[in-house]
Design a protein around this nucleic acid. Structure first.
Ligand SMILES: NC(=O)c1ccc[n+]([C@@H]2O[C@H](COP(=O)([O-])OP(=O)(O)OC[C@H]3O[C@@H](n4cnc5c(N)ncnc54)[C@H](O)[C@@H]3O)[C@@H](O)[C@H]2O)c1
Ligand SMILES: NC(=O)c1ccc[n+]([C@@H]2O[C@H](COP(=O)([O-])OP(=O)(O)OC[C@H]3O[C@@H](n4cnc5c(N)ncnc54)[C@H](O)[C@@H]3O)[C@@H](O)[C@H]2O)c1
Lengths: 213, 213
DNA sequence: TCAATCATGTGAAATATTTAACAAGGGGAG
DNA sequence: CTCCCCTTGTTAAATATTTCACATGATTGA
């Protein structure tokens, strides 16, 4: 957060910054060292002013008359978002979804290290999965500070999501991602993000239906 | 789409409607037959006018002085979104993520039937998974119209996403959900939704970092 | 039947976000 | 060194979305 400039940043901006990183990393892989906001905009399907405005919230990263140095810009965006370091995560609910996430090594690559896995199923507790021992959630409170766990990932069934959230809050976790389709209540200072694929399926179904009339 | 009233509907509204359905179904399960916009608003962490406005895009579903009949409202929202029917989906890429989705029976429950699974790996082609035979993507073009496949779900590695999209477009699919972290190009009339968990992880990391200053 | 009550649906006001337009400034050719 | 070109950063205008405020209409009980 080296050069933050502005007060409130639109939620939508954060989403777009994630897209910019994705596209910039592909550009870099293809050998592009420099890019203009105009070209980046086309690749991201947004307006070029939008990109310049989004970046302006955090600082000045470009060179007038030239554009942005791709590697430098990636670094700057990551710094701005606070993802220029490793975040340690705790996953609760090692089922279908939880296991898929544990096997997915992009988490590590992108700076989110799932350092501990919890499940309340006695058959699972004590077993090892992806080189993590599955632990009972009651141990969260003692393990979280010990291990420096900061973000909780909930992948329990929806009717267990609140319970899982309670464990996380109790363990002083600082933010929560909830994959279960259920709202949870936590203290206001703990940010919660809901991941629900069905949002997107609904949006597609709606757009298809619209275009069809 | 029985009683559509308005022209353009904000994207954010669609996202909220998905949340309303989620919360309403829980309310129904808990035995609530009627609910006011005020109470629903609290459960969804939004403003009550927002709810009334969102619903007003599609029609009048409430009763003044009373509120909304929960079951009726669920039905109305589903009709409005075009999810009051079964959508047949094709999944491309039966790896880690694709397999988790195939095993996840909420898709069926929510009206999205994954009717066919494609993968280009010779070791996987011909195998059966979750009672679906895994098929080579070159067969998409012939199978899609036969089976009435309408929505494509991409779960290939990112560098294969465009190829998968091409197969889907070629097969006259009507909409695409892309789980791979890569932008894809398709004709303008085909809606694409990108699912990327990292958006949410970034958002959490950012909010934690902000609150920390 | 009528009045009191209550929560919706909606137009108008307040905010927020996106887009356009351009002044400012870096880089390179001559 | 100067001029010209190019693209950023930013201010201002245009849109879009959210919130407020209240008239409207359904329901209930006297
Ligand atoms: N699988 C998918 O593709 C998918 C897709 C979207 C959403 N989801 C959501 O993700 C969640 C998990 O789905 P799944 O398919 O993995 O289900 P699952 O039943 O396979 O796994 C759930 C796991 O959570 C554990 N659990 C239950 N209560 C717990 C508690 N209080 N503390 C700790 N662990 C607990 C169970 O023992 C089980 O291992 C669900 O809410 C589901 O709706 C899954
Ligand atoms: N696993 C997760 O939890 C997770 C989370 C977020 C995003 N993703 C994304 O989902 C995608 C899939 O991830 P994964 O972990 O399942 O990877 P994976 O390697 O396990 O599976 C990819 C599958 O796609 C198949 N495939 C490759 N090219 C293909 C083509 N042209 N046509 C058809 N099939 C093809 C492969 O044979 C393989 O079976 C990746 O883009 C990944 O970034 C996965």
């Amino acid at each position: 957060m080296s050069q933050m400039k502005s007060e409130h940043i639109p939620k939508a901006t954060i989403g777009r910054l994630a897209v910019y990183i994705q596209v910039l990393e592909n550009l870099l892989r293809d050998g592009n060292d420099v890019i203009s906001s105009e070209k980046l905009a086309r690749a991201c399907s947004v307006n070029s002013s939008q990109i310049r405005k989004d970046l302006a919230y955090f600082g000045e990263f470009g060179v007038r008359g030239v554009g942005y140095y791709v590697q430098e810009l990636i670094t700057s965006i990551k710094q701005s978002l606070g993802i220029d370091r490793i975040w340690k995560c705790a996953l609760i609910g090692v089922g279908n979804m939880g296991a898929a996430l544990l096997r997915h090594h992009d988490f590590e690559k992108r700076g989110f290290h799932i350092a501990a896995a919890f499940d309340c199923d006695p058959d699972k507790i004590g077993r090892e999965f992806e080189s993590l021992e599955i632990v009972c959630p009651t141990h969260l409170k003692e393990q979280a500070p010990e291990m420096g766990l900061e973000i909780g990932i909930i992948t329990t069934p929806p009717d267990r999501a609140q319970r899982a959230a309670n464990h996380l809050v109790d363990a002083n976790i600082r933010g929560i991602i909830n994959f279960a389709p259920a709202r949870i209540n936590v203290p206001a200072h703990i940010p919660v993000e809901y991941v629900d694929f069905f949002d997107h399926l609904y949006a597609i179904a709606f757009q298809i239906t619209l275009g069809n009339d």
